[in-house]
Simulated scan of single mutants.
Amino acid sequence: MAEAITATEPTRRDFLYLATAAVGAVGVGATVWPLISQMSPDASTLAAGTLEVDIAGVPVGQIMTVKWRGKPIFISHRTPVEIKTAEDTPLNELKDPATDQSRVQKPEWLVVIGICTHLGCVPLGHEGPYHGWFCPCHGSVYDTSGRIRQGPAPANLVVPPYRFAAETKLVIG
């Protein structure tokens, strides 16, 4: 004969086990939450993470320098000649090949971190044979797209994360 399966009624002990587990879970959560929460950046750090820049006053052919996260940011309002020269540069002439289109969101605006990729100096704008940037410390030369053309620097000037919030408002970070 087959044995009948009978369900046992929950006992007081079962209830106490569940209640103890629930209280323990809440206690662990209450203990861990402040620890995890304190690892998040505070409001001042988050505010320093982005920078809004009004670029309406930057005339064509000029470079504006702003500070973001302690680093100089070069915002270049490029001329049509600078854009054409940067776009027409053959990639095989570049140490760190990158198209001009991959480095800009709008052709007339170039945004780069103004720190030489060789030893961290700040290059001078509108200098050198390519009329981009020149690092006087060790002789690195960048073109109008911030690409390394001559000298010891191993890589192009870094393009920071940025977006255009409006036609004349740039948000970096």
Rank of each mutant, 00 (worst) to 15 (best):
E9C: 09
P136K: 04
T144I: 02
A86P: 00
Y162Q: 03
Y130D: 05
P41M: 08
R13F: 10
I73R: 00
R147Q: 01
T168R: 14
A56D: 14
V171G: 06
T6P: 03
R69F: 06
L46S: 11
V159Y: 04
H138Y: 04
G173I: 06
T89P: 02
F134G: 00
G114V: 01
W33Q: 12
A4P: 07
S140C: 04
V60F: 12
V32Y: 08
P80T: 01
Q62P: 09
K169H: 11
T45I: 14
S37I: 10
G27Y: 03
P107W: 05
G57V: 08
I55N: 04
A22Q: 10
P34S: 06
A56Y: 11
V58L: 08
E93T: 15
G125P: 07
A155L: 11
V141W: 00
S44E: 15
L18Y: 14
L110I: 08
M39Y: 11
E87G: 03
P161E: 15
A153E: 02
E82Q: 07
L94N: 02
A48L: 11
V158M: 12
R149V: 00
T11F: 04
Q150R: 08
S102P: 05
N156K: 01
L94C: 04
S140A: 04
G24H: 09
G146A: 03
M1V: 13
M39P: 11
W33C: 13
P136R: 03
K67E: 15
L51A: 07
E87Y: 05
G128D: 03
A48H: 10
V58N: 06
T20R: 10
V60P: 09
E108R: 11
H77A: 03
A153K: 00
V26C: 06
A155I: 08
V28G: 08
A30G: 12
T45K: 12
P160M: 05
P10G: 04
L51V: 08
E93V: 13
M64N: 10
C135N: 01
A21L: 13
V104W: 01
T31R: 15
R163A: 14
G24V: 15
G49R: 12
P123A: 04
E87I: 04
Q62S: 15
P72T: 02
P136F: 03
A25C: 13
I83W: 01
L46E: 10
V158A: 15
T6C: 06
S44I: 14
P41S: 09
I36E: 12
A22K: 07
G27S: 05
K71G: 03
V53D: 03
E93P: 08
V81L: 07
A153R: 00
Y130N: 07
V158W: 08
C135M: 02
W33G: 10
E3T: 10
T85A: 09
A4D: 13
K95C: 05
A165Q: 07
I63N: 11
L110C: 05
H77I: 02
V32A: 14
I115W: 04
H138D: 05
